[in-house]
Design a protein around this nucleic acid. Structure first.
Length: 271
DNA sequence: ATGCGGACCTGTTAGC
DNA sequence: TGCTAACAGGTCCGCA
């Protein structure tokens, strides 16, 4: 479920009910996520007020007095806000019971997500301190992108999905951005002209912006128990459309595996 | 340093 | 209908 736009949508969805509210209690039903949830989490955050929730890449950073909860949704994680006392759903692993009667539930069937605790500045944390720039920030510009790409001969798709190069570009949006920029996903990163790299840079930004905008339309449903975002599906040009006609030239879209991820592209339009 | 495959999990779907 | 295999939005880790 979560690529960057969904994480941002989640953040914007839960923030209004949590900001400046006090965490009464933490209930952990399942400690074993990608890494075990630290035992001291409950002690560290109970009674603390949530100052803010920020996002870095696909990580959510919940700052409370004394430290930060670092949250990742993995492949299948999502958040729900429910009234306190609502029965647990299957795979509800973490609950934050708030003083204002709301309860944040973290649900994650595959348990690839994470809930960690740090007292240091979160950007110093080992999981965050090697991350590349935010894709929508000014730091992700053509000069930087060219610098990164020229030392990489791997397929461009794998390079734009590398969080050391830029954060937040997952499999769906990597496919979409490459189609928008007309670049073949297997093309060696260091063999793309500046002009085409600029097109890719713009495509990454525009695809992510558009998706965040779409996610925003489902925000009002967020406190509902089944708040599944409607998603960006109808806007997808290639992802999930293998064998179907290219919207530009009608050639059937190709589907291959690249780095163990499904990759869809138009062999006619993308070079 | 870069690049690759394996690992962590459960649920859903395609194929026999 | 039931079983099995493959695949799913992520990304860290260890080894070449």
């Amino acid at each position: 479920m979560p690529e960057l736009p969904e994480v941002e949508t989640t953040r914007l969805g839960i923030l209004p009910k949590l900001k400046q509210q006090t965490i009464q209690q933490v209930v952990i039903n399942h400690y074993q996520l990608r890494w075990p949830i630290p035992k001291q989490l409950n002690r560290s955050v109970s009674g603390q007020r949530i100052n803010d929730i920020q996002r870095r890449g696909k990580y959510l950073l919940m700052s409370v007095g004394g430290g930060t909860v670092i949250i990742h949704l993995g492949m299948s994680g999502h958040m729900k806000l429910v009234p306190e006392g609502t029965p647990y759903a299957k795979h509800d692993h973490v609950s934050l019971i708030m003083d204002n009667g709301w309860c944040l539930r973290y649900n994650d069937p595959r348990r690839f997500g994470a809930w960690l605790w740090t007292k240091e500045a979160p950007e110093q944390h080992p999981l965050l301190n090697h991350l590349g720039p935010e894709p929508l920030s000014n730091g992700f510009d053509l000069a930087y992108f060219m610098e990164q790409v020229k030392k990489r001969k791997a397929p461009i798709k794998q390079v734009i999905m590398d969080s050391k190069v830029v954060v937040g570009v997952g499999n769906i949006y990597a496919n979409e951005a490459l189609f928008q920029a007309r670049i073949h996903p297997k093309r060696a990163a260091n063999r793309i002209s500046a002009k085409r790299l600029e097109a890719l840079l713009k495509a990454i930004k525009s695809v992510l912006r558009a998706a965040i905008k779409q996610g925003g339309t489902t925000l009002k449903d967020f406190s509902q128990s089944d708040g599944k975002p409607g998603y960006f599906k109808q806007s997808l040009q290639v992802y999930g459309r293998g064998q179907q006609p290219c919207y530009i030239c009608t050639t059937p879209l190709s589907e291959i595996r690249l780095g163990q991820r499904t990759t869809v592209y138009c062999s006619q339009c993308q070079r």
